[in-house]
Measured scan of single mutants.
Amino acid sequence: MSIQHFRVALIPFFAAFCLPVFAHPETLVKVKDAEDQLGARVGYIELDLNSGKILESFRPEERFPMMSTFKVLLCGAVLSRVDAGQEQLGRRIHYSQNDLVEYSPVTEKHLTDGMTVRELCSAAITMSDNTAANLLLTTIGGPKELTAFLHNMGDHVTRLDRWEPELNEAIPNDERDTTMPAAMATTLRKLLTGELLTLASRQQLIDWMEADKVAGPLLRSALPAGWFIADKSGAGERGSRGIIAALGPDGKPSRIVVIYTTGSQATMDERNRQIAEIGASLIKHW
């Protein structure tokens, strides 16, 4: 067993022997301040990774656009098919120029040779490549099948209805392509620590998230040296922004954090800054 596999296998073990965790309302004060600064709703939840206990939450059962955070769930569904012998990570998928959609920095470079399922998941999570996500959605049967996968996990809230990039439209009061912070946090925890996926697939999923290259201005910008984070960000229309993450000190994750916002007129930089400040408060009061 590799060191990384050992780390993920012992996530519940280490967490069980940690000192009790206590909620700190100071972080919620910052979440509410972010709402004021952005002029928009902000949803927040913080779960203990081992027990699933909610440590703090704000608007945990209000719907927010998922945006690209759905790509972690998508690759979880792909990995479940791999575990069941219905898919192979090494299978190569070929596609054409007509398949390319807006923001496809990886797939646009491989029109000639195609990409493997493993490479597509890596591109979808680490670079948020939209064509990679659409190609992977095709392998599982489309958005409705991802929703069905989530329902089978016990998540009857999260739903995907459309493809990239239309799913980022974020129309107010439109339930399409949305989740709730509580539902997303619980589902992410199941994917990373539950028995739904094999140990190898859980490790692969967290490795992809740990290698995320496009979430630097968010929670990662607030992390002290030595902290662990595996995350996936999302951005959408109407001032929408979000991030889902597993993080913790001492090089291992111990909490799940989900943050979503929508309806702001603020710039992307300002949305990023507010999420980073929430992260800084979380870490300060850990």
Rank of each mutant, 00 (worst) to 15 (best):
K284S: 14
I206C: 14
H285E: 10
L47S: 06
G236R: 01
G114E: 04
L137K: 01
E61F: 10
K190A: 13
V117K: 01
I54E: 11
L219W: 04
I11N: 05
L89Y: 07
R241A: 04
S221V: 11
A280I: 14
K213H: 12
T267C: 10
L73S: 08
S201R: 06
K213M: 14
L55Y: 11
G142A: 04
S201K: 07
Y103S: 06
P224D: 06
M1D: 01
G142T: 07
L10S: 10
L89F: 08
T198C: 10
W163Y: 12
P181H: 00
A84L: 10
S57K: 12
M180H: 14
V21H: 05
T262Y: 15
T147H: 07
L38F: 08
T27I: 08
I278R: 00
S233Q: 01
N168E: 04
Y260V: 06
Q204I: 10
L55P: 02
P25D: 10
R159L: 05
P253T: 08
P172D: 13
K284G: 12
G239T: 02
D113F: 07
G236H: 02
M66L: 12
E102Q: 15
L167P: 04
M1V: 05
A183N: 09
N152E: 15
Y260S: 02
L191V: 09
I93Q: 05
G194P: 10
K53T: 14
I243S: 02
Q86R: 12
S281D: 08
T198N: 12
S57A: 15
P143L: 04
V29R: 08
P143N: 04
G279R: 01
L89M: 11
H94T: 14
N168T: 07
S233I: 00
L120I: 06
S57M: 13
E195Q: 13
A235K: 02
A266C: 13
G114L: 04
V214H: 06
I259A: 03
R202K: 15
G52L: 05
L247A: 05
I275R: 00
Y103F: 09
G226M: 07
I11E: 03
F149Q: 07
P172L: 12
D207A: 15
H110G: 08
M268V: 09
K232T: 01
L136M: 07
M268K: 06
S51E: 12
P20C: 05
I283Q: 06
G216V: 07
E166G: 11
G85P: 01
A148N: 14
T27S: 07
P65Q: 03
L10E: 04
V82L: 05
L199T: 10
E26A: 14
E119N: 08
R92H: 10
T178N: 03
A9V: 10
I54W: 08
L167A: 08
Q203P: 02
G216Y: 08
R63V: 07
G39C: 10
L73V: 13
A23R: 04
Y103A: 06
T186R: 14
A182W: 13
W208L: 06
T178K: 02
L192Y: 06
Q37N: 15
G263Q: 06
T261A: 09
T131R: 02
D33S: 14
